[in-house]
Design a protein around this nucleic acid. Sequence first.
DNA 1: ATCATAAGATACGCACGAGTATCTTATGAC
DNA 2: GTCATAAGATACTCGTGCGTATCTTATGAT
Lengths: 206, 206
Amino acid sequence: MSQRRSETTPTRRRGAALENAIIDAAWEVLIEQGYNGLTFEAVAARAGTSKPVLYRRWPRREDLLLATIARHWRPLDIPDTGSLRQDALTFLRAVNAERARTLILLRIQLADYFRETGTTFSDLRRRLRSADQTPPLATLVARAIERGELADVPRSERVVNLPFDLVRHDMLMSMEAVPDETIVEIVDTVWLPLLGLSPHGAQAGH
Amino acid sequence: MSQRRSETTPTRRRGAALENAIIDAAWEVLIEQGYNGLTFEAVAARAGTSKPVLYRRWPRREDLLLATIARHWRPLDIPDTGSLRQDALTFLRAVNAERARTLILLRIQLADYFRETGTTFSDLRRRLRSADQTPPLATLVARAIERGELADVPRSERVVNLPFDLVRHDMLMSMEAVPDETIVEIVDTVWLPLLGLSPHGAQAGH
DNA sequence: ATCATAAGATACGCACGAGTATCTTATGAC
DNA sequence: GTCATAAGATACTCGTGCGTATCTTATGAT
């Protein structure tokens, strides 16, 4: 339902309150209608304001789009549970949670934007990150090596990042959350064996 | 350049010649402009014809879209080189070749269509396939077991289909062909070890 | 030669959204 | 209380495409 002011309280929003309402509206429209549905008209209506208000702040659609995404882009915490398996499961479940999943699915939601601008999802990620970051799974593996849980041998990035790539693959194919059993299977029957670990001591994944 | 007839040869196309020209034009527009760019106006212009000609054959945009995809949907041959590794490399390289890759990337090109219709890429695949098919990698693994190259033990679908999922993941992320070294790495450092094989006897991948 | 069919061209009314102009008036600084 | 600023509303021109109506005429069957 529109946040348009009711007639009995003709209060005009200003500053951060107004801009937050617009950015929130833009995010909702983007997620529900995709990039092509993200129009000034639709966002203004959803935010209960009017087009000149948006044009004054974001003269181009790309400006509005990037401001919207930047507001919702937050890196995930990297877990430290004491066990590589538990670290990986915790992290992948966080990736699969609604907020993080939605950001991954931007790869698809913004396909027309990438084509139109000749940019890529990686370009967008680089633009939004303050600095280069170690991939989270590389950090988890490094900690496991420190704990003596894993042998300190060279491993390809492909193998280290494997569970994240597989979870992301399933998300991109289904556009939905990945079942928890799938996350457990990926870690237990694919990743840990490849790393030279067995899930022998694994407890129930819940 | 449009296939519109030159004035010196005012020949009107009919039947298959006309329909093939339209479907070819539709495919080009779809691949270049995405689903939203696939308009009757754009396709008619590209095909060198006019909108009534399209509307007479395909009254709805979805009709035109599905006819276009059906014309280009062809299953890949499953290789039989005598070696699981070589079978997998050959198959994945075919997947990575332009025609097959383009069909995989429809997952992204048609994102707005799927959202609008509440359907999925899997629905589309089911609709286009004459019958349920064994996933190609399952066939390759079955043949390796028959040759005695692999132990005959139960294996999860996840593990069997892994290299295809990883190649597809990289394609969806980059919207481009996957480097050949990546395909070799996926087979040699991820898949074969998981299956209990070593690429020891592996020759150069070319 | 005749003729039914349909290709191709063009125009039309309509819907939708971009982007801007214009207006009223709420609002917060002073 | 005054006043500059901008929120919100509304209207406008323009561009684009939908889907259909109308027309001319090429074409292949007869």
